[in-house]
Design a protein around this nucleic acid. Structure first.
Length: 290
DNA sequence: AAGCTGGCCAACCGCCAACCC
DNA sequence: AGGGTTGGCGGTTGGCCAGCT
């Protein structure tokens, strides 16, 4: 049996929302909260289907939504995440809590995709190529780095997805821990971190199997999950523009974390990392008491 | 000034997984 | 357990607007 429509479409208004409708919807949600959307049209008298009400709220009326131009950092973060996650706009939006998935999707389709394609075409026709495999572009250094980042992330993702064995291999190297860990109680196990491209791809594999965590959870990947491997992985690249630092700073790491963030910078030609970019992994066991 | 074109973006559509009874 | 319902998600559409001819 086919799926029934969310509404019978009879007497249901479509098209742009009016300020009056917005007001009615906001007032109702303020009182009752954003739940049970099916009742919203009936209870408010709005001639809209429940789905339309929900979309209007989540994409436009919900508090905390930032509108207007995307910052350069947001732009770079989206490009990073799109390369890693693909068109999973909701997952990407979870890392930019002030932006809606619809906004990000629109911005990608109307600005970034075009921009990147244009960049690639321009460089293809220019014909030049630097030692790191990307064409030389004197004008746009940051764009070049961006392209390096994308290439690197795609490579990591590809390996992460097609690795045969999901087994993790870790190497322990506490000396590399930029530790600020100082919680009392039992001695936590020594931190481990990935120190090879093979490990990175396996870390990423596990990450890709889990839904992305929102920023409020202060971590990427499978962390915060009791049955998880208690790892948190962030992948990106470092450049003088600080794109990964931006990712990191946006994470607002939980002060209760048992360990401080461990960073390993890898300079590995296999990942196409030039002097400007590196693959960075964060591995943070969240709860050493278990 | 009028018509045309392309860009932008809010909103819609349809699929799907989770949830509920 | 299974079918119906709901909410979430990604792709697409269509209307508005600015710039161009």
């Amino acid at each position: 049996m086919g799926r029934l429509p969310c509404c019978d479409n009879i007497g249901v208004k479509k098209g742009p929302w009016t300020p009056e409708e917005d007001l009615i919807l906001v007032s109702y949600i303020q009182e009752h909260g954003p739940s049970n959307w099916r009742c919203v049209p009936t209870n408010t008298g709005l001639s809209r289907c429940s789905k339309s009400c929900r979309l209007r709220w989540t994409n436009y009326l919900r508090p905390g939504i930032k509108r207007g131009n995307f910052t350069r950092h947001e732009e770079k973060l989206i490009i990073h995440l799109q390369a890693l996650l693909g068109n999973r706009w909701a997952a990407i939006a979870s890392y930019l809590p002030e932006r809606t998935d619809n906004d990000i999707k629109n911005y990608w389709n109307t600005h970034l995709k075009k921009k990147l394609l244009g960049k690639i075409n321009q460089e293809t026709y220019a014909g030049g190529a630097a030692a790191d495999g990307f064409p030389v572009n004197e004008k746009g250094q940051w764009e070049r780095r961006l392209q390096t980042d994308i290439n690197m992330a795609k490579k990591a993702l590809h390996e992460a997805l097609y690795m045969e064995k999901p087994t993790f291999i870790y190497e322990s190297n506490p000396s590399s821990c930029s530790s600020s860990h100082s919680s009392g109680g039992g001695q936590p196990p020594p931190p481990t971190y990935a120190s090879s491209t093979e490990n990175i791809s396996r870390l990423l594999e596990n990450w890709m199997r889990k839904p992305a965590k929102p920023l409020e959870d202060a971590s990427f990947g499978p962390a915060n999950s009791a049955e998880s491997t208690q790892l948190s992985v962030a992948c990106g690249s470092l450049s003088s523009e600080g794109s990964v630092f931006q990712v990191e700073s946006k994470l607002s790491l939980d002060p209760d974390l048992q360990y401080s963030l461990i960073e390993t910078w890898l300079l590995d030609d296999n990942y196409g990392g030039g002097q400007d970019s590196n693959l960075m992994l964060h591995h943070l066991p969240l709860d050493a008491s278990d």
